[in-house]
């Protein structure tokens, strides 16, 4: 299958993250699955006029297109013209190109939370009037209409994340190449379920602190960051702590909170990214699927039962009290 990759209004970070794919490297990985780039703006040889001719050939139906990957949000400004982002050399807005090329592609993949839902460029006053390819924030209907299906019969596949984990992108492409990607493989926001059916909370090394609501009060402390530091790992989808990033990393492993970057509208949480909003001193926001009354009851009970070790370590920047050793019975 061939891939045309376009960089719309984003930071290029999902491509840069993609290059971090390992075992094997991204070139061998895609090559081995029969995937090749028709063109990628950071990686291909072709530049300038030949690229314009290739894009025109796709539009004219002379060049088949299997997978259209779009990275970055789609800008509509100023005043609906899309001219805040002209695709260089073409005089046409990226908005126009995305609409025109999407209908030619067998599959359309939105790579990263900018492309899926609008993402960071739509923060604040949304200066460029940025939206996603098939969503505007959490609302279906973006640069492409809500009911859009590519010629392969799929809605836009939303590989959300800011940035995307390299495997989220490569596994999606490999599933497409294997013919294993179906509408049922996507969740309610169009995200591939192979990573979106997990929560960032799963395998978070702070889980024992979470169990007792033993909380960090400042970034770099070891405790759970849900109560004070804005962590929404118990609600955010992603297998970040199961799969890990760049070797053994994840946001919570590095001592800062999950900010829900795989979700629509994560860029505007309504409060500081590293603080938890509270109502009458009680944090707002519950773990996914947890009844509020039970959560409150269990939280107050477990907090009262916090072991000394966990309580002390929660506000330390490294393990200060180790687990008690038990002697074997014999």
């Amino acid at each position: 299958m061939n891939i045309l990759w376009l960089q719309s209004a984003g930071c290029g970070g999902c491509t840069m993250s993609l290059l971090c794919a390992e075992d094997p490297n991204v070139m061998d990985l895609l090559d081995g699955a029969g995937l090749s780039f028709l063109w990628h703006p950071s990686l291909s040889e072709m530049t300038g006029a030949p690229v314009r001719r290739m894009l025109e050939a796709i539009e004219a139906g002379e060049q088949e297109l299997d997978i259209l990957c779009i990275e970055g949000s789609i800008v509509r400004g100023p005043n609906g013209t899309g001219r805040y982002h002209i695709l260089a050399g073409t005089g046409r807005s990226m908005l126009d190109w995305v609409r025109s090329l999407s209908v030619k592609a067998k599959y359309v993949v939105a790579v990263g939370t900018c492309a899926t839902y609008g993402g960071v460029p739509s923060a604040g006053e949304n200066p460029s009037d940025a939206i996603g390819v098939q969503y505007d924030g959490a609302h279906r209907g973006g640069a492409l209409p809500a009911e859009f299906l590519s010629t392969g019969g799929m809605p836009v596949i939303n590989v959300a994340g800011c940035p995307t984990h390299p495997d989220w992108v490569t596994d999606t492409l490999l599933l497409l190449a294997a013919g294993e990607m179906t509408p049922e493989a996507l969740d309610g926001y169009g995200r591939p379920r192979f990573y979106a059916d997990h929560l960032v909370h799963h395998a978070c090394p702070k889980n024992e602190f979470y169990e007792y609501k033993a909380s960090a009060t400042n970034l770099s402390e070891m405790g759970c960051m849900m109560e004070h530091l804005g962590c929404v790992g118990t609600q955010a989808v992603g297998d970040c702590n199961i799969r890990t990033w760049n070797g053994e990393g994840s946001c919570t492993r590095a001592g800062y909170p999950c900010i829900n970057c795989t979700a629509p509208e994560f860029e505007e949480p309504g409060h500081g990214f590293t603080e938890t909003p509270k109502f009458a001193g009680i944090p707002v926001g519950l773990p996914s699927d947890m009844p509020k009354a039970w959560f409150m009851t269990l939280a107050s009970l477990s907090k009262a039962a916090t072991p000394h070790r966990i309580g002390v370590n929660a506000t330390a920047d490294r393990i200060s009290v180790p687990p008690t050793l038990r002697k074997p019975k014999s």
Binding site: C11, G13, M16, S17, C20, C162, P163, C240, T244, W245, N246, G247, E248, G249, S250, C251, T252, R253, A254, G255, Y256, P257, I259, C261, F273, T274
Partner: peptide, 15 residues
């Protein structure tokens, strides 16, 4: 970049 994974959680976009 494993160094950034370990000390910074991920690359790009560490906090």
């Amino acid at each position: 970049l494993h160094i950034v994974g370990m000390l910074g959680g991920k690359w790009p976009h560490t906090l």
